[in-house]
Design a protein around this nucleic acid. Structure first.
Lengths: 367, 367
DNA sequence: TTGAAAGCGCTAACAC
DNA sequence: GTGTTAGCGCTTTCAA
């Protein structure tokens, strides 16, 4: 009479019947509730083992109102940066018994919103990497996505934790590094025009220009891939720059490769910098000077913010006078100094000097 | 009186009330059932929009017995190979309205089984990359994981689709390539000892040795990372080999980098080959000769096998005399010639010659 | 064409 | 300590 339910799978009812107890008791045993008599518990466990019973998480989720799963929306799973965020997030979440559901928007900004909503409803929270989405759309969407953790974005209105990399400062550090080496003509091989993080880099360079009126910074259209860098050789060379900043390491690697093919010596003739410090950056020839972004750690931190948010959301609605009960959490480098509305956690990239940058060549360029 | 249910979210009941219809009608409208009067349907849709109603997928999953989600277990999310499989799978699944849940076993073979079961129960099927799991354990586990698609593994008993890369033949092609360039002393910087795909490579090299008794093939302990290659320089040099095969591109890149630091010329002094053809392989210096594995395509194919399996599982239990209704599916290069039990789909890596291999140096080595 | 009600598998009051 | 029962949010017979 091993009546398995309609779906053909063994359910709690089968175990209850075999053990001669009620559903509730089985449920209690399976959830480690110790109010169950030891002997009965043993009987239930034996029955569960015999039937190879495994609780159905969907039923559990419906009853509990939680899925123990979080979603992440990324613009491009082939980008090492998002891969690293995903990895950091996934590892940290696993530690706390959560899984991650991925949604790749394929760089299509119109997809970002839909995927985000979709993913959110199946999960207990959402980590959003949506570099293309407009601020307005993000602001409108954010409330319906809570618990929400933002990567490299922030919103004014909603109090979603936000993790940001200080790209503006990072690109300035790189430019300063080149200037320190004697370069006076720089070029920036920029990223995707509508990318939020590219805008930050541009803003940083703007500030750099103001602080360094004597330095020429040439802006070159670009993108985010190898190919972009590879195809930019001519543009870079004809810009007359001796120091080239790129959007990220991928672009820098493409450029390095292209320059090599053109017989241009790096860093002898020209210096090249990347951004991100992906793991491959130390294996290029020459090795790549870049800004090191602790991106896996960012993924981990995203999880910390997420779990805090999820937990505090389960508490009774906070009254205006009660201090937010978020304090007992991981240490953040800065930005958690007393303010109640969660300030963005800022990650400061660190300059990593390797072989692709060197002293400016003293050759008779224009100016 | 907008009574939102206990969870605080808007449910189908709220819409039904606002539209003045029953739950069933709302459900029908939301699912595009056309037996609903157009006017009523419009009223329901208006109510849904007004309330910003979004169906709860968990309730839906429970009622429907499916989640529209598949799981994938990978040993290491930082490995470009698994990243590519994940990407191919995710993109293809998204096309059909499915999402993917990831489980990273962190190379811990004991975790593979647990994670696999865990993930499977939350999903409609599972893609398993479990290179460390023993054949016995895999065979025992497989039945409980169906629908199951195996990557680089296969089982005798259960009829799970299996996608395999012919590593044995691939490594032989690489060895042949080196021999064709005049190399007679080869070394193989092997992969993780217990890795299934490493065993295939070793088997391939065994066959190579039998076919090429005059060629010396030195076996070197290794691993799967940059660092392994980077640290193997001394071992490689003292092996006296002029042609070095490596477990994968990562190891090859590490080796290339290490050799460069030691002032060893590649391919002048020594030739190096990788395996996989990850996207970075064409940007190393020198560019890397390797076996190109269509790994993203493998991920896509994994999805095709998965969706076929899911669909056929929904059909009435197949009778012994009925031909399996799987035929109407994507073209597979080979291996689908009439046999009923699904033969593994074999992916044949293709030799891609780049700059890291060249003629053997004519220097007076021993022998 | 529409509604009432049972049920998907599980948990958690509440009663015993 | 254990069982009964009412949901969790949705779909889907089955009647009307």
């Amino acid at each position: 009479m091993g009546r398995r339910s309609a779906t053909g799978r063994i359910g709690i009812a089968d175990v209850a019947k075999l053990a001669g107890v009620s559903l509730a008791t089985v449920s209690r045993v399976m959830n480690g509730n110790f109010t169950v008599d030891a002997e009965i518990a043993a009987r239930v466990r034996a029955a569960a083992t015999e039937l190879r019973y495994q609780p159905n998480p969907v039923g559990r989720s419906l009853a509990l109102g939680k899925t123990d799963t979080i979603g992440i929306v990324v613009p491009d799973l082939s980008n090492p940066t998002f891969q690293a965020i995903l990895r950091g997030l996934s590892m940290a979440a696993a530690q706390d018994g959560y899984r991650v559901l991925i949604a790749d928007s394929s760089e299509v900004s119109s997809e970002e919103a839909i995927l985000a909503g979709e993913a959110r409803r199946r999960c207990d929270g959402l980590v959003l990497c949506a570099p293309r989405m407009s601020d307005a759309e993000l602001a409108e969407l954010a409330p319906s996505l809570q618990p929400l953790v933002l990567i490299n974005r922030s919103t004014e209105n909603t109090a979603s934790p936000s993790l940001m990399v200080d790209y503006a400062k990072g690109i300035q550090d790189l430019a300063d590094h080149l200037v320190g080496l004697g370069h006076t003509r720089l070029a920036f091989l920029s990223g995707p025009p509508r990318s939020a993080s590219n805008k930050l880099r541009l803003a940083g360079l703007e500030r750099f220009r103001e602080a360094n009126p004597g330095i020429d910074v040439h802006m070159l259209p670009g993108g985010s891939s190898f190919e972009v860098g590879h195809q930019a050789v001519d543009a870079v060379l004809s810009s007359g720059a001796t120091g080239v900043l790129t959007f990220n390491d991928l672009v820098a690697m493409g450029l390095l490769s292209g320059l090599h093919e053109h017989g241009v010596n790096v860093p002898g003739d020209i210096s090249v910098t990347g951004f991100d410090d992906i793991s491959f950056a130390r294996y290029t020839t020459p090795t790549l000077t870049t800004m090191t972004v602790p991106i896996t750690e960012l993924g981990e931190q995203a999880w910390q913010r997420m779990i805090e948010t999820i937990r505090s959301a389960r508490l009774p609605a906070p009254t205006a006078t009660t201090a937010a009960p978020l304090a007992a959490s991981a240490a953040v480098e800065d930005a958690d100094d007393g303010a109640r509305a969660p300030l963005p956690t800022i990650f400061h990239p660190k300059l990593t000097v390797r072989g692709s940058t060197g002293p400016a060549a003293v050759h008779p360029g224009p100016q």
